[in-house]
Design a binder for these strands. Structure first.
Lengths: 210, 210
DNA sequence: GAATATACCGAGCAGTGCTCCGTTTAGCAA
DNA sequence: TTGCTAAACGGAGCACTGCTCGGTATATTC
């Protein structure tokens, strides 16, 4: 079985390789953000000022390139979560982070099934990177649960999956992300009617902001 | 501007055209279900026993073909919703229908952005077909709201979008749909902790079942 | 400065979506 | 039955894609 993962960008790379690697990542970020993840790889290479062969040398498959991009985003979110552990209100901290997570997770349109598969595959680089996210989210979630603000029968995986889905739906429905907050609120509060009036404006639940 | 929508399959078609149309639809349903919506159209044509030119004559674009398929599915769901209006418990009826809706909406993997766009475009055939779904869902939703089982500040569009998202997430997370019920439950009940113990097993909320 | 491992690059292959137009045929009128 | 024609069929062909392969250039080491 052939290796289809990108070799990690170590310090042992030759200088020209390192430069091209960085330019490819930058070009891919820009083009995939604008055109979706099925954009032409030739164009990515062109945009990076590099031959198509060089692109494939660094990233033997489109998925490998996407994994490298996503991994960087995961790292930012992980740091965000760690920081929010110090915020005063655990519920609000979680809600705030979910919002950022949702926005980031919809940055690239049309992530192919191969990437989703890589997320599930324990052997992949992306899985490890995602595991970091998951543990960070676990901490944030556990704190909100201890504070009695979030249901206890919920794990971080479910939280990430459903929040991601809300952000995705918001983007599908409107073409941009303006509905993200509304949908995330629906997820947090639920569709089922409550005895109290928690759904009224200015209610006591965690607020989505920032 | 050129017309990219499939001409409706009226009774005025020539017999061979009608036959080929039906065979194309059947082939597309089978292949798109198995391989996802980016399967080769040449293969669809081959599977239908028809030249590639014939496929394009009936469906000038991949989106047109998908629209025809989706439209059929929408019609089934619409009839389902109308039938469930007679079910005894409005909340359960809604939950049951959402489950079917979720399963159906994830039948074809990787619906391209063009289809989502068509759903939003008031001029498209698919939009009209989707509007039928929306009004059917509106009836089902209104009944549950009148019964006090669902929050009142929720419209059918939000309901469909978020339920679809849950089904999508369930499929992404597990590769199949075994988590669909769990995620839909999270959406209905919400993540936020309740004063009562509504999240306990056997609670009083609407139940998701067949 | 020479040697060499490493990286670069783009022509080329097989596949794709979609078009165009010559060929065939279904349906109808004589 | 036959002849006519509008309609439908079909596939070669174009421009593109993802990806490979091996000749060429270059960064690094001695």
């Amino acid at each position: 079985m052939m290796d289809t993962t990108a070799k990690p960008a170590g310090d042992s790379m030759r200088s020209d390789a390192r430069r091209n690697y960085d330019q490819l990542i930058a070009a891919a970020r820009s083009i995939f953000t604008e055109q979706g993840t099925d954009a032409s790889l030739r164009e990515v290479a062109r945009h990076a000022g590099v031959g198509i062969g060089t692109l494939y040398r660094h990233f033997p498959t489109r998925t490998a390139l996407l994994e490298a991009l996503l991994g960087q985003g995961f790292e930012v979110l992980r740091a965000d979560a760690a920081e929010l552990l110090d915020a005063p209100d655990p519920g609000n901290a979680l809600a705030t982070w979910l919002r950022r997570f949702g926005i980031a997770s919809t940055r690239y349109e049309g992530l192919p099934a191969s990437v989703m598969e890589a997320l599930r595959d324990p052997g992949s680089l992306l899985h490890a990177s995602c595991e970091g996210l998951r543990t960070a989210a676990t901490d944030l979630l556990a704190r909100a649960q201890r504070a009695g603000q979030v249901r206890h029968d919920l794990d971080a995986g479910e939280l990430l999956a459903t929040a991601n889905a809300m952000a995705w739906a918001a983007r599908q429905a409107s073409g941009s992300g303006e509905l993200t907050d509304r949908y995330l609120t629906l997820l947090m509060e639920g569709l089922t009617a409550r005895d109290g009036a928690a759904t009224a404006a200015g209610g006591a639940g965690p607020r989505l902001s920032g």
